[in-house]
Amino acid sequence: AQVHVDGVTYDFDNPEEAEKFAREMAKRKGGTVEVKNDQWHVE
């Protein structure tokens, strides 16, 4: 699973880890999390 944050792509073998990371980053940035094509996007 991939997580996109500020133009940087992070690869995770485990989708749950990807989701956890995406939500944590969004919380830190005060942003939102979107899922597109099985990829997490932190805005």
Score class of each variant (00 low, 15 high):
A1F: 15
A1M: 13
A1R: 13
A1Q: 11
Q2T: 12
Q2W: 10
Q2E: 05
Q2S: 12
Q2K: 13
Q2R: 14
Q2V: 11
Q2M: 08
Q2G: 03
V3A: 02
V3H: 01
V3S: 01
V3R: 01
V3F: 02
V3E: 01
V3T: 02
V3G: 01
V3M: 02
V3I: 03
V3P: 00
H4V: 15
H4S: 07
H4E: 07
H4F: 14
H4Q: 08
V5S: 05
V5G: 01
V5C: 15
V5P: 01
V5K: 01
D6R: 05
D6E: 08
D6P: 01
D6K: 04
D6H: 07
G7D: 04
G7P: 01
G7I: 03
G7E: 02
G7K: 02
G7N: 06
G7V: 01
G7Y: 03
V8S: 05
V8H: 10
V8T: 09
V8M: 12
V8A: 08
V8G: 02
V8I: 13
T9E: 03
T9V: 14
T9N: 03
T9S: 06
Y10K: 01
Y10L: 03
Y10S: 00
Y10F: 09
D11C: 15
D11N: 14
D11H: 14
D11L: 14
F12Y: 01
F12K: 00
F12A: 01
F12L: 05
D13Q: 10
D13W: 06
D13R: 07
D13H: 07
D13L: 10
D13P: 12
N14F: 06
N14I: 05
N14K: 07
N14Y: 06
N14H: 07
P15D: 10
P15Q: 10
P15F: 11
P15G: 08
P15N: 12
P15V: 12
P15L: 10
E16V: 11
E16K: 10
E16I: 11
E16N: 06
E16R: 10
E17D: 13
E17N: 04
E17Q: 09
E17M: 06
E17Y: 03
E17T: 07
A18F: 01
A18K: 01
A18M: 01
A18H: 00
A18D: 01
A18Q: 01
E19V: 04
E19A: 08
E19W: 08
E19T: 02
E19H: 04
E19I: 07
K20S: 10
K20E: 10
K20T: 08
K20H: 08
K20I: 10
K20A: 13
K20R: 12
K20W: 11
F21M: 01
F21G: 00
F21T: 00
F21W: 09
F21L: 01
A22N: 01
A22I: 03
A22F: 03
A22K: 02
A22S: 02
A22W: 04
A22E: 02
A22R: 06
R23H: 09
R23D: 04
R23S: 05
R23K: 09
R23E: 06
E24T: 05
E24R: 08
E24K: 08
E24P: 00
E24D: 08
E24N: 06
M25S: 02
M25Q: 07
M25P: 00
M25R: 02
M25D: 00
M25A: 05
A26Q: 06
A26S: 04
A26E: 03
A26P: 00
A26T: 02
A26D: 01
A26R: 05
A26V: 05
A26L: 05
K27A: 14
K27H: 10
K27N: 10
K27P: 00
K27F: 11
K27E: 12
K27I: 12
K27S: 11
R28G: 05
R28F: 11
R28I: 13
R28W: 11
R28Y: 11
R28Q: 13
K29W: 14
K29Y: 15
K29A: 10
K29T: 15
K29P: 04
K29I: 15
K29E: 06
K29R: 13
K29L: 15
G30M: 06
G30H: 09
G30V: 03
G30S: 06
G30N: 10
G30D: 06
G30R: 07
G31P: 03
G31K: 05
G31S: 09
G31Q: 07
G31C: 15
G31I: 08
G31W: 13
G31L: 11
T32D: 05
T32S: 09
T32F: 12
V33Q: 04
V33K: 03
V33A: 11
V33I: 10
V33F: 08
V33P: 04
V33T: 05
E34G: 09
E34L: 14
E34A: 14
E34Q: 13
E34T: 15
E34R: 15
V35F: 15
V35W: 15
V35P: 04
V35K: 14
V35Q: 12
V35Y: 15
V35D: 04
V35M: 14
V35R: 14
K36H: 13
K36I: 14
K36S: 09
K36L: 12
K36E: 09
K36C: 15
N37W: 07
N37P: 05
N37K: 08
N37L: 09
N37A: 09
D38T: 08
D38W: 09
D38I: 06
D38N: 15
Q39H: 11
Q39E: 09
Q39Y: 06
Q39V: 14
Q39W: 05
Q39I: 14
Q39F: 06
Q39K: 10
Q39T: 11
W40D: 04
W40Y: 12
W40T: 04
W40G: 03
H41Y: 15
H41L: 09
H41G: 03
H41W: 15
H41N: 06
V42Q: 03
V42G: 03
V42S: 04
V42I: 09
V42Y: 05
V42T: 04
E43N: 14
